[in-house]
Design a protein around this nucleic acid. Structure first.
Lengths: 157, 157
DNA sequence: ATGATCTCCGATCAAATAGGTCGGACTAAG
DNA sequence: CTTAGTCCGACCTATTTGATCGGAGATCAT
């Protein structure tokens, strides 16, 4: 349960990769195109393209067209929150249908519903969690396969 | 994003209602049948029945068959966590596909994936959040506990 | 300038999952 | 024993998600 979509997964991988290239030591400042990312992580090319387009539309990355083109981060990694990334792809956070009810619409269970308020509380907690974590926290450089000491993880803050 | 299913919603409403009847002041100990809950909250009867069956199979409630039959909680409200309820309906918590990979199976992106470990960290935080909240916290019409964000480090309450 | 290449973008298709429905099996009251 | 009321499991449909295709526009190399 509470699974995030594959597209969101791809978005996180792609942004992590772009950040690593752009701010890394090897070829700093280089833009990276869709194909490179797709091959590196075995992601369907066309689908990844669509994901990156969406991210660009939400101003998380900017696109450079033509040959030698590609994508580049607009902000630095620590200024991009996980919440922003996920919401760009999957829409606003809402663990229940009635999370974003506009005035005038309401679910059929609303009048006697006792669980809405506690659930919104849970939702707030998750929102804070995702807002306090940035792309920088995903940078660690250590590949997954190697054994890693718990202290060496980039996510520790 | 991260929306829980309608079935899970119905499960929470139903359990809240059963607990209110069973441990309330009006008719304590009474079992409550599917129809009563469905009408109270405008839930499709047959679908709610299926949800309750699932909850019974996971030993959160017990079914009493025949006339005057219905469902009753087996444990008290404060001993049933939200995590247990949701997992009974939607399966184990897992924000990403590779959360519960068995030995031998792995996603196509695994070998170069840098986001798995941080995401599992997020998942752990959410798990703690849901495990620290019980059905009791949903009782009483008015909101009850304040939940702190587990974002910084370790979840405390 | 012109062609070749690369990216962007919309529309489209297929698979998975959630939402909802049906008839039968069982139980206990009368 | 009958009968009304309940649980239970299989079935069907609709929405969402994952993935794909083809063309238009932009940029760089020649």
């Amino acid at each position: 349960m509470l699974k995030i979509s594959k597209k969101a997964d791809y978005a996180l991988m792609a942004l992590q990769h772009i950040a690593a290239v752009q701010f890394g030591d090897v070829t700093p400042g280089r833009v990276v195109n869709t194909k490179e990312i797709a091959e590196e992580y075995n992601i369907p090319l066309e689908l990844l393209a669509k994901v990156l387009q969406t991210l660009a539309k939400h101003a998380l990355i900017e696109s450079h067209n033509g040959p030698k083109g590609g994508y580049a981060l607009v902000r630095r990694a620590h200024q991009i929150t996980i919440a922003q990334i996920l919401e760009s792809i999957e829409g606003p956070l809402g663990i229940t249908d009635c999370s974003h009810e506009k005035e005038g619409e309401f679910c059929m269970q609303r009048e006697n519903c006792h669980i809405r308020t506690p659930l919104l509380k849970v939702q707030d907690s998750i929102a804070q969690l995702l807002n306090n974590m940035t792309l920088q926290d995903m940078m660690g450089g250590t590949p997954l396969i190697t054994i890693q000491s718990p202290a060496a993880q980039g996510v520790e803050r």
